[in-house]
């Protein structure tokens, strides 16, 4: 029964993730006063790459790199329950907790970094180094906010956190939500912090050596992974969801905010984004933490 549950979760994440990405391309097209492609354009792109006649590979570690990345993304998805009280769509979250999910989010990129390193493309390695440099900066405010949320709801299990929010955390603890949003924008690779694969600087970063089916695997896992992160943010800060419709509109609102935020700002340099993320959101998070713990108990 749990296998069916996992399969359903995977399929919903795959389709909803790609439809969100299609909507993203349409909305940014509208920002730029043009029509933009169909919503299913990302499906066509990834399936076309699956259909490529052949793909260049640099040895078995290169072959396994994207596979580990996809494994990391799918494992993160499995350990995040979609709804806080219903038994279905809870995946493996019964066996895991929030710390595990935080670390699983880092497993995929590290695995892919091995593949990129073996590929031997200097641009790929520079993209990975930029990603790892930005990683600890974006994780600091996120960890402070998450730790505060955990101590407020006295549990590290995502379902109980989502369920125990009488007034949703975004309004109960606005400072924590703002700090987490800053790092969420960076996590989704949106504009001021999209330094990893900046085409103008690093020749499309880590993905510059992957072609054909590896590239489509990377595309599909990024769709699944972004949906998993959206669901995690909804569970932590927007009071979880008890029905599919509520889950969808909450994740879409969050996604819309991330797109709008990204469309206004140009790209920071890596040290600048690290500097910014370590200063502004971290201070907000610490102040939020103090308020939360002082008022919390």
């Amino acid at each position: 029964m749990i296998i069916l549950d996992l399969a359903l979760m995977l399929i919903t994440a795959y389709f909803v993730g790609f439809i969100y990405y299609g909507l993203y391309r349409n909305i940014t097209a509208r920002f730029q006063r043009r029509i933009g492609p169909t919503i299913f354009q990302s499906f066509y792109d990834s399936i076309k790459f699956f259909g490529k006649k052949e793909a260049i590979s640099h040895g078995w570690m290169f072959y396994l790199g994207p596979i580990i990345m996809a494994t990391g993304a799918i494992m993160t998805l499995f350990f995040i329950p979609f709804f806080y009280q219903s038994e279905s769509f809870s995946g493996l979250s019964g066996y895991g907790n929030l710390f595990l999910v935080l670390y699983l989010m880092l497993l995929g990129p590290l695995g892919n970094a091995m593949g990129v390193g073996v590929g031997g493309n200097p641009f790929g390695v520079m993209g990975v180094t930029r990603g790892l440099t930005r990683l600890f900066a974006l994780e600091l405010p996120f960890y402070i906010a998450v730790v505060a949320i955990m101590s407020i709801s006295q549990s590290a299990d995502i379902a109980t956190i989502a369920g125990s929010q009488t007034t949703i955390n975004a309004f109960a603890h606005p400072l924590l939500f703002i700090a987490a949003l800053f790092s969420f924008v960076a996590m989704m690779g949106q504009s001021p912090f999209d330094v990893v694969g900046a085409p103008v600087e690093v020749y499309s970063g880590p993905a510059s050596e992957f072609s054909g089916k590896f590239l489509s695997l990377l595309m599909s896992q990024s769709a699944i992974f972004s949906f998993a992160k959206l669901v995690l943010m909804v569970n932590l800060f927007l009071g979880g969801a008890d029905g599919f419709f509520e889950l969808l509109w909450k994740t879409f609102v969050l996604f819309l905010f991330v797109i709008a935020f990204g469309a206004i700002y140009g790209r920071f340099k890596t040290p600048q984004s690290v500097d910014f993320l370590i200063k502004v959101p971290t201070v907000i998070a610490i102040v939020g933490l103090i308020f939360a713990t002082a008022w919390g108990n």
Binding site: L106, M114, G117, T129, L132, L135, E139, Y143, I144, V147
Partner: peptide
Amino acid sequence: LLILSAMLFASASAFLYIYKLIYGIYLG
């Protein structure tokens, strides 16, 4: 909690030298 988040931060920032260790010797 501040000590906990500082430790999470320190272990997250450890990824850079960990990747440097394995990349510097085996990859590239």
